[in-house]
Design a protein around this nucleic acid. Structure first.
Length: 574
DNA sequence: GCCGTTTTCGGCCCGACTGTTTTCAGTCG
């Protein structure tokens, strides 16, 4: 699957065109193409084969030809032409905060700088080259210098759970400032995206209090560096080199600002375009007819005034939610409160930190009606995987412990390993004794897409298997995991009445959002599980719910939102 | 380069903050 690869090339072409000063509308359309390709769950090769490339939003004749050329010849002429016009390492300058295409072009043409390393040397040695660059004074040079040092210390986007942990204390700190009526996380954190670039916080307060609140924010304990502080917004760097931005707005604009700063950018652009067709103007202060504000206090009245359903933040990615909302066809998404159980929990019997009873109690404390304890199987030696004998003893221990919790349905399960060729770590007669079987891959996690797909399909077709755990095996920001043909996997899952896991741990979130959507579209069922190895891990469920919502999942799609009786009936179906 | 419920041509989102060319360009979100 070459989706990501081709998307990157379109993004790089856009970068090059920006430096060369090309028409910015054209550049924007290249960005849209890159986005369409990276949002695509199925292999772009399939669309190309079926002549359906132009069905993708923003992909026209010319882009389709470029994609076809890449797939058949491994190159895109236009990209090669652009590369020939610009020094190879110049585009990396665009990644330096504060450096955009205009300044990058000037550094190149007026100072002969062609890479980040050369820029660093030019500043370090003070060789005088930068003096010739117009628009570049001492302050800007100092800021660029700091950005260069900042760059070497950060690893890019942080994971959802990490951002959430940073935002929580900051929100609590802000709530103590005088005049604050409410403070919420906006941006990709509110949308529940798997990684977060920076933390956006929106605060409702009277205008008169704004400046003091921003000061309160920039003076916060965790702040390492203040990047900006004005009358309506402030910007800081937190521990771990994470940027956090704050905006303070009065109540009459809060909804407009929340919508604006929640994004996504692509969703917002569409909203503004719709506003224009209705003779309105939409900005972060409200929805305006001339000078009159027709909406802005909350998001719902804005969507209503634009003639569409309220769009939940998780769907705001311009992946079809605008059209659905305009025709009243948005799904009734799963809610966190719908979750009735956790179906993938470890205990001290394998590599968990808490006992059976502690985990049952913790699930009961969270209001669950059912749960499944699923330890590793014998080949997971490093994780204390259970062999047949220990597994049988463990089942007895679970049954015994469960008697102390009559209200909780405790399933004795297993997380059985799927080997490289798709066969399992336990024989069918062992699996038959269990209430619930999750099958997962823990080894050979780098294999070609067709082999990985076949491996999962074989496991799905195996008797007694009811769920595939963390189907791609990816670890966000550290391991890509399998590329799979999600349509094939989901179709097999639907046909065999096997669920696909959304692993709720913020390091996994696997299935990921676009896979959930493809799976649901194919009629596959989802189980959102925390794969908990401790009591605290149980609280990761919220990240799995966010991911499922981003995949347009409804309660009907998510088995562990079903009532206990319906779950028990489903368990008997295979 | 894409796109069409005022369209196949003429559009294509909006404002804050910063530093510098002291009236605005560049960058960012």
């Amino acid at each position: 699957m070459k989706n990501r690869e081709i998307a990157d090339i379109f993004d790089r072409m856009a970068d090059l065109m920006e430096i060369l000063g090309d028409d910015h509308f054209r550049i924007n359309s290249y960005r849209k193409m890159a986005r369409a390709l990276s949002d695509l769950a199925e292999p772009v090769e399939n669309l190309a084969r079926d002549g359906k490339l132009q069905d993708l939003p923003g992909i026209g004749k010319s882009a389709a030809e470029k994609i076809q050329q890449y797939l058949s010849a491994g190159r895109i002429d236009k990209y090669e032409e652009l590369l020939a016009k610009v020094p190879p390492k110049l585009p990396e300058l665009l990644g330096v905060p504060g450096l955009g295409p205009k300044t990058t072009a000037k550094l190149w043409k007026q100072a002969g700088i062609t890479s980040v390393e050369e820029l660093r040397k030019a500043i370090e040695t003070g060789d005088g080259r930068l003096i010739n660059v117009e628009g570049l004074g001492p302050t800007k040079i100092r800021n660029i210098w700091q950005s260069l040092n900042f760059l070497t210390s950060i690893g890019g986007r942080i994971r959802l759970g990490e951002a959430d942990a940073l935002a929580g204390p900051m929100l609590a700190h802000l709530a103590q400032a005088k005049g604050v009526q409410q403070a919420l996380a906006a941006g990709s954190l509110r949308r529940g995206k798997e990684t977060i670039g920076d933390i956006d916080i929106l605060c409702q307060a009277p205008q008169s209090a704004a400046e003091a609140i921003i000061k309160h924010f920039t003076d916060s304990p965790g702040v390492q560096k203040v990047l900006a502080g004005g009358k309506t917004r402030g910007s800081v760097v937190l521990a771990g080199a994470v940027q956090a931005d704050l905006r303070v707005v009065p109540a009459e604009c809060f909804g407009a600002a929340l919508s604006y700063f929640t994004g996504s950018k692509e969703h917002n652009v569409r909203l503004r375009e719709i506003a224009i067709t209705k003779g309105l103007k939409f900005n972060e202060y409200g929805l305006f007819k001339g000078d009159e504000r027709v909406a802005g206090r909350n998001e719902r009245e804005i969507y209503a005034a634009l003639g569409m359903q309220y769009v939940p933040p998780e769907l705001r990615e311009n992946r079809g939610e605008i059209e659905a909302a305009r025709s009243g066809k948005l799904p009734d998404l799963l809610e966190a409160a719908d979750i009735r159980g956790d179906m993938h929990i470890h205990t001290t019997a394998s590599d968990g930190l808490n006992s059976i009873e502690e985990m049952i109690q913790a699930c009961q404390d969270r209001g669950y009606q059912y749960m499944a304890i699923c330890e590793h199987s014998k080949s997971q030696v490093q994780a204390g995987g259970l062999d047949e004998k220990r597994l049988a003893e463990h089942v007895q221990a679970i049954r015994k412990a469960a008697k102390k919790f009559p209200k909780m349905l405790v399933l004795a399960g297993v997380e059985v390993d799927i080997f490289k060729d798709g066969h399992l770590d336990f024989m069918a007669d062992v699996l038959a004794e269990l209430d619930f079987v999750v099958a997962s891959c823990h080894s050979a996690l780098a294999m070609p897409a067709d082999e990985a797909t076949a491996r999962l399909v074989k496991a799905i077709e195996t008797p007694h298997v009811r769920c595939i755990g963390h189907p791609t095996g990816r670890m966000i920001n550290s391991r890509p995991g399998f590329e799979i043909d999600i349509d094939k996997v989901a179709s097999a899952a639907a046909a065999n009445n096997v669920a696909l896991e959304v692993n709720a741990h913020w390091m996994r979130l696997d299935l990921r959002d676009i896979h959930v959507r493809a799976a649901v579209n194919r009629g596959a069922k989802i189980i959102i599980s925390t794969d908990s190895h401790s009591i605290d891990d149980l609280d990761n469920m919220k990240y799995g719910v966010l991911t499922a919502r981003r995949g347009w999942a409804t309660p009907a799609d998510v088995i562990n939102s079903w009532p206990k009786k319906k779950l028990q009936a489903w368990l008997k179906e295979k």
